[in-house]
């Protein structure tokens, strides 16, 4: 019988612990596939964050380091500078990359660290059970914004990829989603480019991926995809926001 799909060798056989309808699994698969397709599994050092994806070292078949909350990019910097020949990526949530680790993200971008950050934005803190994130939308109800995020006192969601386009050392910045088959294809394309930018030694590459959290949003998986499409997308800049100079300039 002809095989039309096999699980990537970039991922282990361990079942994901993620909730039904969560898109971490899809993003993991894309990364696993790319590690395999780009022949990177044995050359890669991945850095796991703290958050829902804090156990992702169990899934990726490359060597992995578990970081403290917010420190994944610093850990990746230390590893990459120690082993410049290795492919080094961080996998982070919105709390990790845009709140507690914002200084690390910005500074690594400014230094043009030859690492790739995969930033999974679901507008909420999943692991701790649905608290407000730096990316939570104005009006969004969470357990620490029970009356809705009030812009006057809690500010606005941070559009991190858009900010990063302003930083010289960030040479590839993309903001994608995984809510439709087409979007998943686009996301994989962006990840591939980000990985290649690091392989080419061009600088920091960053891919933001809009993701769902049905459990903490309090909706069904299908409703979660609708919420992502109708509520999240208007609040975050989408697309390839910055590509390397070799692809037509340092600005998108």
């Amino acid at each position: 019988m002809k095989s039309i799909f096999t699980k990537t060798t970039g991922l282990s056989d361990r079942p994901f612990h993620y909730c039904p309808g969560c898109t971490h699994g899809i993003i993991h698969r894309l990364i696993g596939e790319l590690l395999e397709e780009m022949n990177l599994i044995e050359n890669t050092i991945g850095v796991a964050p703290v958050g829902c994806s804090g156990f992702c070292e169990n899934y990726f078949m490359c060597d992995m380091i578990g970081a403290a909350h917010g420190r994944a990019v610093a850990v990746a910097t230390g590893a990459k500078r120690a082993r410049p020949d290795r492919f080094v990526f961080t996998y982070q949530g919105d709390g990790d990359g845009a709140s507690i680790g914002l200084a690390e993200t910005m500074s690594a971008a400014a230094r043009g660290e030859r690492i790739t950050s995969i930033f999974v934005n679901n507008c909420i803190y999943g692991m701790t059970g649905g608290q407000m994130a730096p990316t939570s939308l104005v009006g969004q109800k969470t357990s620490t914004s029970p009356y809705g995020r009030d812009a006057m006192t809690m500010g606005y969601p941070l559009d991190l990829p858009k900010v990063l386009t302003q930083i010289e050392g960030a040479v590839y910045v993309a903001s994608v989603s995984v809510d439709t088959p087409q979007a998943i294809k686009e996301a994989k394309k962006a990840l591939r480019k980000a990985f290649q930018v690091q392989r080419d030694g061009l600088g920091y590459s960053f891919v933001s991926i809009l993701s769902t959290c049905p459990t903490n949003w309090g909706v069904t998986p299908v409703e979660a995809l609708e919420w992502l499409q109708t509520k999240m997308k208007p609040n975050f800049t989408l697309g390839e926001l910055k590509v390397p100079a070799t692809e037509g300039g340092s600005e998108a």
């Binding site: 380091i65 970081a67 610093a74 850990v75 230390g78 990459k80 290795r86 200084a103």
Partner: peptide
Amino acid sequence: GTYLQAESEVAAIYMVYGAGAVGERV
């Protein structure tokens, strides 16, 4: 070798963590 000025001591100690984790003296 490599000298890198970190953005803070918080970042510095985790850079140490990263380099130590890959097995280098740091």
